[in-house]
Design a protein around this nucleic acid. Structure first.
Lengths: 167, 167
DNA sequence: ATAAACTTTCAATAATTATTGAAAGTTTAG
DNA sequence: CTAAACTTTCAATAATTATTGAAAGTTTAT
């Protein structure tokens, strides 16, 4: 496999995996492209490489910046804006986990809490609803806390502890 | 909040969260309905409750069975088929994690491995591609292994260890 | 102030994904 | 064997989501 093929394979795979970490295809592909680029890229360069429109590129770059994983890089003397992504995978994972928690998991936990707190009227179906949503609530909360803790650590000790556990 | 409202809220929230664990809305809603039901439900009952067609119900039940989180329950004397979902959240999480790993994560790890194994021709861009995809590969593999380990355990010791770590 | 260089916005359109419903298929009872 | 009860399949359609491209907006150089 040559460079060009490998590059395309990487971008399309990582792109189609977007759903796994909760972003759309174009976003994921732009991020991939930046991730393996040796320099910051302009909008033109991104459009050309991925064959997507200017509007699409602009909107998705904005979203990537909202997620905190892409930043503008102003090159002195240049009029254009250039973009780079976080290059360290640990940092990248940290940002993504944090955003997903904030955008999706936390709001769901809140609703599970509300639902599981309804008044117990003594009927079997109400008891079941309360019991099951409470169980989900606890699971979601534990998973979320664990993820955040793992991912937020200035870490080393925790990574080592976990590595020991999974070995 | 009364039972009916809480129930609807739960089903629609959990349903729209489908993406988070990689399934579609109808699938997630059917699973939710079964999850808080006190008895196994027939296709008719599911269709009526969720206001979805027979075809849709049939297809999504099948997928839920493929995922291993819904099972048919044959009630003696009854002609209809009845369905239940795994009621234990830990087991549920275990099944979901296992399936996602198998369907999505493992194949991506494979591709990352292939891409990161291309011949180093000495150019900066090839070096960067190799370095970055290797880093992603390692991250993905560790995360996958960790998840599987956590979730597959006949556990207790591991749960306790982790709880200690995140406290 | 003006024009060139560049970016953003957003209504229109395309692509993708989910849903329906009726025909075909299957199983069981009599 | 046949009909009734039920489930599955799948082409058509609807709903959702992504993408385009051109007009409007912004910034900088002169």
């Amino acid at each position: 496999m040559e460079y060009q093929e490998a590059k395309e394979k990487f971008i399309s795979t990582w792109g189609s995996l977007g759903t796994l970490w909760g972003i759309n295809k174009a976003m994921a592909q732009i991020q991939s492209l930046l991730f393996i680029s040796t320099k910051a890229l302009s909008m033109e360069e991104i459009m050309d490489e991925l064959k997507i429109s200017r509007g699409n590129t602009s909107m998705n770059l904005r979203q990537l910046m909202d997620w905190g994983i892409v930043t503008k890089e102003l090159i002195p003397g240049e009029r254009k804006e250039y973009f780079t992504t976080e290059k360290d995978v640990q940092e990248l994972a940290r940002h993504i986990a944090k955003e997903r928690s904030r955008r999706e998991i936390k709001p769901v936990i809140k609703i599970l809490k509300d639902v599981s707190s309804i008044k117990d009227d003594g009927t079997a179906k109400t008891k079941e609803l309360i019991k099951q949503t409470k169980a989900l609530h606890d699971l979601a909360e534990t998973a979320d806390a664990m993820m955040n803790k793992i991912v937020n650590q200035e870490q080393n000790w925790i990574t080592k502890s976990l590595l020991k556990l999974i070995k």
